[in-house]
Structures are given as structure tokens and as C-alpha cells.
Amino acid sequence: MKKTKHWCYILVLFAIVTIAGCASAKQVKAPSQNISSSQVLQSLRLTNRYFMDKWPDTGKPIYTNRWRPSNIWTRAVYYEGLMALYQIDPDQSYYNYAVDWGNKHKWGMRNGVETRNADDQACGQTYLDLYEIDPQPQRIKDIKDNIDFIIQSGKVDDWTWIDAIQMGMPVFAKLGVMNNDKTYFEYMYKMYHHSKVIEGGGLYNKADKLWWRDKDFVPPYQEPNGQDCYWSRGNGWVVAALVRVLDLIPQDEAHRAEYLQDYKDLMEALLPIQRADGFWNVSLHDANHFGGRETSGTALFVYGMAWGINKGILDEKTYRPVVEKAWIAMSNEAIHPSGFLGFMQGTGKEPKDGQPVSFSSMPDFEDYGLGCFLLGGTEVYKMLNK
């Protein structure tokens, strides 16, 4: 009896030591949840300075597999982020850098004022922002002429891929506000509606509250695990579009309620599929299809969620821990000491593109990922300063 009692004491002691050891190990490994607005701003300045120093000539063409002008969509997304950073950190060098970019391209678009490609129109978001700061007519002439040309054509099926919603939609919204003209709002909605419910049978899946990238990924297309293919950054582009449009249009705009519901539904769909480490996978419903950390999609989701918290649209108790977890993950795991951002998927349209994605992998374009990170970070900064 005494021998049995003795062994019981030993087993209990062993269990206590083991549990204490596990708790201690978890405490050491868990990232700190204490983030400050000053730390966020420091990360934004570091990553942005890396890029501005690397690209001192804003008009220099970009070379990957061929030469492209530097007013294409990838660079335009960076400037969206830069203008957001300028709002919270009004450094004159940011403004000058953006104005120089517009001047170098004569405030024009890659394929001229009759382009129908939303990728060409993305630069107009920054042109319009800069016009509001200093209303020089040449800054918005070409982009307004282009959007007026699109409206006059009567054609509404240009946005055949969901990236285009982010590249083009905020331009319509901003012109509608600046000109106090609902025509831009109505035409914007027609194009959005086509992408959402008509293109390829509709690129939005109401059941999963997520978007297929284009008609090539509408079922019967499947991921290796049999699930639908929902590309992280593609859905991130829709998040950014809805945030930017909702931030601009009037409260009584005819289609605002629909945009707002689509935004809320998308945010809700992202909650249960965040990775344990804080990132989201490139394939939202198949973690094993090129799984792993990915910064651009994660940053866009952070942008959307933090914005919703700041506007009082999303429940802070539900979403703030998700945002903080994602921001800490990106800050701890993706930022190099130089300011270069790792775990960034290169350009493409699906999980397999731009692979492999790692801490040290270099995407074919460095600019758009940084733009996404700046957009997300500025909203996190605002959230922490509420």
C-alpha cells in the first residue's frame, strides 16, 4: 500500500512538472500581443524607405520578363499605399515622390485615354488624390476623359477578373464625389454587378461569401482537396475595392447597402480560415495547395478588418484580435532589417503562380505588395490610436 502511494506521489509530481514546462514553453514561443502605433509607424517607414531608396527615379521602366512603364497597376497600388501613409505621416518627401511619378508620366495611362483595361486606370486613384491636394487640371484630365469614354460606350463587361474591381472601381467613386455626379456611381455599380453575378455565371459565391478570381475558376474547377479555388490576394483586391468605395460614396448612395453587406460577408468568411500563425494561405480553402505564409493577401485582409473596426462597422472584440495577430505575424516574420518584405507571392492569378514564396524569395514586382502592406498598416495605426 505504501509502495503504491509512493508511486502515485511521483506520478503527480511528474505531471505537475510536465504541465509547468509546457506552459513555460508556450509562454516563450508566443509572440507579444502588445503592439503600439509607434511600432507600426516605424515598420511602415522602414519598408517604404527601402522602396523609395531603391527606386529614386519614379519614371524608370520596370523590367521583369520585359519592359513595362512604371505607371502600371503594380506601381499604382504602391502609390495608393503611399498616399495612405501620407495621411498619418505627412512627410513632404512622400508627396513629392508621388507628384514626380505623375509628372514623369504626364498624368497619363499606359494605353491612353481610350483604354478599357482597369489595370491602366489604377494610377488614376493617386492622380485624383494629388489633384485634391493641389487642383491642377492636368492631373485629372486624362483619367476623367478615360472614365467618361467608358461610360459613353455603354459597355459594362470589362471587369472580367476580380483584381479589376480594385483597380478601377474607386476611380469611378472618386470622380462621382468630386463632380457631384451620380452617373459615375450608377455606371460603377453596373460594372460591379456584371462581375458579381453575370461574368462566368457570377464570380461571387454567396454560399461561401468569397470570390472566384475569374471564370476559369468557377466550378467545376476544384483545388486538389476538392474545394473551390479562392485565391487569397484576389479576394484581397475585392476587400480593398469595397473599403475604398465605401470610404468615398455618400451614405445615401443607392447601392451602398449592397456594397456594405458584401464587405461584411467577406470579412466574416475570412475569420475561421486565418492560419494559426496569423497569416492567410494563398489558397483560402486548401491549406495544402502551395500553403504557407503570404503577405499581400494577409495585408489586404488586415486593411479591410482594421478599417471596419475604425468605422464602427465590425465588432471590435471579434475582429481586433485577428487583426493584431496578423499584424504581429507580418511584422515579426516578413520584414527584413533592410525593409524588404518577404513571403510575398509574385504576380499571377492563382495559388501556383509566383511560387515558391518564402522569407527570402523575391517577387517579380516588389511594389504592389508594399502598397498592400502600407494600406493595412495605416488602418492598424488608426485603430491603435482610437
Rank of each mutant, 00 (worst) to 15 (best):
T4S: 08
V12T: 12
L13M: 04
I16K: 03
T18L: 14
G21A: 03
P31A: 04
Y50S: 01
M52P: 01
P56R: 00
G59P: 06
P61R: 12
R66S: 13
W67T: 10
I72G: 08
R75A: 05
R75K: 10
A76Q: 03
V77R: 07
Y78L: 15
Y86N: 13
Q87N: 05
Y94G: 04
Y95L: 11
V113Y: 14
V113W: 06
N117M: 05
Q121S: 10
A122F: 09
G124K: 07
Q125V: 00
Q125W: 10
Y127G: 11
L130A: 06
D134S: 11
I147P: 02
G154S: 10
W159D: 03
W161K: 03
M169V: 03
V171H: 02
L175E: 11
G176C: 13
G176R: 07
V177N: 02
M178S: 14
K182Y: 10
T183Y: 05
T183K: 13
F185M: 14
S195A: 15
K196W: 12
E199S: 03
G202K: 12
W211S: 14
D216H: 03
Q222F: 02
E223P: 01
E223G: 02
N225F: 05
W237I: 12
A240H: 04
L242F: 07
V243R: 10
A254N: 09
E258P: 02
Y259S: 12
D262Q: 13
K264L: 14
D265V: 00
L271S: 05
G278N: 04
F279N: 02
W280Y: 10
L284W: 07
F290D: 01
F301I: 04
V302S: 12
V302D: 08
G304L: 01
L314W: 07
A326N: 11
N332E: 09
G339A: 06
F343I: 00
F343D: 09
G346H: 14
P351L: 14
G354P: 04
G354V: 12
S358K: 13
F359H: 15
S360R: 10
M362P: 00
M362T: 15
M362N: 14
D364G: 11
L370R: 06
E379I: 06
K382V: 03
